[in-house]
Structure formats: structure tokens, C-alpha cells
Write a protein that binds this DNA or RNA. Structure first.
Length: 429
RNA sequence: GGUGGGGUGUCCGAGUGGUUUAAGGAGCAUCAUUGGAAAUGAUGUGGGCGCAAGUCCGCGCAGGUUCGAAUCCUGUCCCCACCGCCA
């Protein structure tokens, strides 16, 4: 949520961001109108309260009773307007960075840079599902029978491969030396503080989910609800990592605070019927290693660059070709100030596909979460970043398709071999 | 799930209807002192509205009673203890 004061003072910028994000800019005017009404009513209510307090201290019971009656008439009006304003404020998106491309949908995202050489095959490369079925390591058919569409079993070497990816990422995120190399590439002397590993809850309360700007009337359809217990399943580890410092004031010295968590993510994929139905690219449940961090406002953008540099490092170590994409206003998330994706090359589809995303939220989430940082004697809302380290399913796809051999076996990327305990996944035949 | 005890600011902690204007302490920030530090002293340290004076709100959350609520009542969430169940 944006600060109403910021909206008041930067009306045009907020309106532009709202319409650039394909939302109705009249939201902004409506909010400002309500805000004005609210402040007028506040003056009235506070005046009456002053009277009430005065009469109470004078023990003037008669006058007190009168004032109470007037207050009881007007207070509910104020409350109602405050509620409406809050609802509107939730709908107004974050403003965007200057380097965010303006565009109507994903077709206008901008490729910032590319890395790696696409593998050349002297045979027609297969896709991960064909390979996975033949190797006996992916089973979507039985999963469909047991759990429905968009579920899968990973078996045997696919599980070892996921475990190797997990170990590899973990070894990087907790290694200050390696992080230093990466942070130096962003800016000399920038913090190389390691990440704290976390095993977070997979369930989340609706009020916290709302404060994270991840549960709204529009996005509710994307969530798995557990109505009897009034809870939701998380769609990303971000959802329960982000509130880790809710209602806390942190100290500048603790910054940046970096966390990562390996969890399943649950998504209904409600708007994507018929899209990416083949294989395990788009699933209702997938494992993901997610990074989250809390920084001072000053370092928020640098932190995002650092996160992207980590993502690039991980993919480059795997030697998987990727492109870095600046997400345009029409495709970016509402809470994002800047969103950058990594798309990895997938020979089975002859396309780059999104494997990583990185969201810089500024204080859009922390304002509602009430997570602050004390800098000197100023207290400010912390700036929050979240980003993918590995989305396991999609990274496994990229490895399988890029490292396949003509006989259907799969070479294991060099960096993973020590964690995997072998150098290839052999064809069953 | 049951019974009892608790939840106060960055942290600890006092406060059982009106001198509380949320005591006191710690931490933190700024200043003074110092060659520098420690120690010491002073000031500041929840949020909203307002140019300001000021004013309102704030004691887990939501309601209620009262002229007046941190304090009384109801509901609810969380923590602790014991019981029940359990990997």
C-alpha cells in the first residue's frame, strides 16, 4: 500500500503508474476525494472528543452526556470512510522505477542482456516430459489420477537432481566469500552478508496475507483456501518470509537482513486453463528456493541488483543460457517498483521460459506489515526484495533439455555432480 | 480440545475507574566533557491531522458499559502451565 500522503503529493505519478499497470486511474481521484472527506470528519470528531475529555475532567455529567450523543452519530461515519479508503488504497499499485519499460502486456518486456551459447544438437531435441517418461523420473499420468491435473511425481534421479540443486544453492547463499564476489560485481564494497536459512510455515492467516499485498478480491482465486481453519496455503515462501519482521522496528546495523527458504508453493493457476499443460512447467504444487531481504530504503535497488546477480551466477554455473528481462508496466505485479525476470533456454520448446523472478517492492508491503528500520533517529519503513533462487521444476526442465543426449540420457552439470553423486542420468534401455 | 495465568512503547517493567500528562530502568540517537574512548550529564526516542500553537488516537485485536477505561464486561487471537491427543 502506498502512503496517502505520497499519493496526495505525487498525484500525477501515481495516476500514470496506475494506468500504465492497466488499472483504472480514477482509483486515485476517488482515494483523494475520500481522504479529503476523512480529514474534514476527523476535525469534527476530534473537536467533539476534545469537548468530551474536558467535560470528563470537569466531571460535568450533563454536558458529557450531550457530547457523547453527538459523537455516537458522527464516529461511525468516519469509520466507514476510513474503511472505504483503505480498500481503495489496497487497489492502487506501487509506482515504478524509471527504467521500467512502459507497455501493455508481456510482449513489451525488454530483454536487457543474454548469456550463454544455446546447445547445438545433431538430432531433434526432445522435451523434458518425453525424456522424463522414458527415464522413469517424471510421472504426470499417475499424479493426475491421484491428485488431478497439474500435479506430478518426480522419482529416482529427478529427486537426486533437485536435491543437488538445493545443496548447490544453499552452499552459495551461505558462503560469504562467494557472495562477496557476486556483490562486488554489483558495486564495490556492497554488503556480502550471508543469507539465513529458514523453514517457514506453509499456512498463512488472511489478514497477514492481505498486508503482504498477496491476497485481494482479485488474487484470492489464485490461492488454495482452508476455510474451516480460516487459512491459506502459501503461493511462495515469500508470503511467510515477508512478514518475519511484522510490527518490529529493526536497527540500521542489522541491515541488510537476508533470508532464504526452500518450500513447496501452491497455486490454483486459475487463469491459465489450456496453457502450458504439457509436462511440469506449470503445476499446482512446486518446490522453490526463495530469497527475501530487508534493507534500508537507500539500498533497496542495489539489493535487487545483487539478487539478480545471484540468479545469474547460479544459472551461469549450471551453464544454462538465459536472458535477463525488464518486466514492463503491463506485466509487472501491482506491488512491484521494479521486476526483473530470468528466462532460461529450453530446447524442447525452442524458447526462453521464465525460471526466475525478482521483485523490488520498496515499502509497499512493509507499510501495512509495520516493519520499520531505525536510521539515526529517523524511523522508516524497511524496503523489501524477494527473488527466486531456484524454481525446482523449471530448473530441472532446463537441465534435462539442455543436457540431453541423443540416446535420451542426461548429463549432469559439472557443479552439481558432487551433490548428485553421479555424472549422468542413464537411459533405461 | 479442557482448565488456570498472562499480553503495556525498541526492550524490560509499574500501573485494578478520574494528579497517568503511560512511572521507572535499559538500549538507541544527538549534544557536552575527552587526544580518542569508557564513565558522567543534558535532550530526544509510538502513530494520525495541522505551517504552527495544538489536538486526537495508542496498553494483543474487535466490540460494549461509563460523563470518564490500560483498568470493568463480551467475543477473539497469541504466549505460558497443567490435563487430553499425538509425529
Amino acid at each position: 500500500m502506498l502512503d496517502i500522503k505520497f499519493i496526495r503529493e505525487n498525484k500525477d505519478q501515481v495516476k500514470k503508474a496506475t494506468s500504465d499497470k492497466q488499472l483504472d486511474p480514477s482509483l486515485v481521484e476517488n482515494a483523494l476525494g475520500l481522504d479529503e472527506k476523512r480529514r474534514d470528519l476527523m476535525k469534527e470528531v476530534e473537536g467533539l472528543r476534545t469537548l468530551r475529555n474536558t467535560y470528563a475532567s470537569e466531571k460535568n455529567i450533563e454536558k458529557g452526556k450531550e457530547t457523547k450523543k453527538s459523537l455516537q452519530k458522527i464516529e461511525p461515519k468516519l469509520k466507514e470512510i476510513e474503511k472505504q479508503l483503505l480498500e481503495l488504497l489496497y487497489k492502487i499499485p506501487n509506482v515504478v522505477s524509471e527504467d521500467t519499460p512502459v507497455g501493455k502486456d508481456e510482449s513489451e518486456n525488454k530483454v536487457v542482456r543474454k548469456w550463454g551459447e544455446k546447445p547445438k544438437f545433431d538430432f531433434t531435441p526432445k522435451d523434458h516430459l518425453e525424456l522424463g517418461i522414458a527415464l522413469g523420473i517424471i510421472d504426470t499420468e499417475m499424479a493426475a489420477k491421484v491428485s488431478g491435473a497439474r500435479f506430478n511425481y518426480l522419482k529416482g534421479d529427478a529427486v537426486l537432481l533437485q536435491n543437488a540443486l538445493h545443496q548447490f544453492a544453499l552452499s552459495v547463499l551461505t558462503d560469504e566469500k562467494k557472495l562477496k564476489e557476486i556483490s562486488e560485481s554489483v558495486e564495490k564494497g556492497y554488503s556480502s552478508k550471508p543469507f539465513i536459512p529458514v523453514i517457514p510455515p506453509l499456512f498463512i492467516n488472511p489478514d497477514v496475507y492481505t498486508k503482504m499485498a498477496r491476497l485481494s478480491p482479485e488474487t484470492e482465486i489464485e490461492r488454495y483456501a482452508i476455510p474451516r481453519d480460516n487459512q491459506y496455503l502459501i503461493g511462495s515462501a515469500e508470503h511467510t518470509l515477508g512478514p518475519l519482521h511484522m510490527d518490529q522496528t529493526l536497527n540500521e546495523k542489522q541491515m541488510p537482513l537476508r533470508y532464504f527458504a526452500f518450500t513447496p508453493a501452491f497455486r490454483r493457476e486459475a487463469g491459465s486453463y489450456g496453457k502450458d499443460t504439457r509436462g511440469i512447467l506449470r503445476q499446482h504444487q512446486f518446490d522453490k528456493l526463495e530469497m527475501e531481504s530487508f534493507t534500508t530504503p537507500e539500498n533497496g535497488e542495489k539489493e535487487q541488483n545483487f539478487f539478480v546477480a545471484i540468479q545469474e551466477y547460479l544459472m551461469a554455473e549450471l551453464k544454462i543460457p538465459y536472458q535477463v528481462v525488464a518486466i514492463c508496466t503491463g506485466d509487472i505485479g501491482g506491488p512491484d517498483y521494479r521486476q526483473i525476470d530470468l528466462d532460461s533456454w529450453m530446447p524442447g520448446q525452442d524458447k526462453y521460459r521464465e525460471t526466475h523472478t525478482s521483485d523490488y517492492m520498496t515499502d509497499y508491503q512493509s507499510r501495512r506489515l509495520n516493519s520499520k528500520v531505525k536510521i539515526k533517529d529517523e524511523t522508516e519503513f524497511v524496503h523489501m526484495n524477494d527473488a527466486t533462487a531456484f524454481a525446482m521444476g523449471r530448473t530441472i526442465i532446463a537441465i534435462m533439455e539442455n543436457y540431453q543426449k541423443e540416446d535420451g540420457s542426461i548429463e549432469i552439470p559439472k557443479v552439481l555432480q558432487k551433490w548428485m553423486g553421479k555424472s549422468e542420468i542413464l537411459s533405461k534401455a
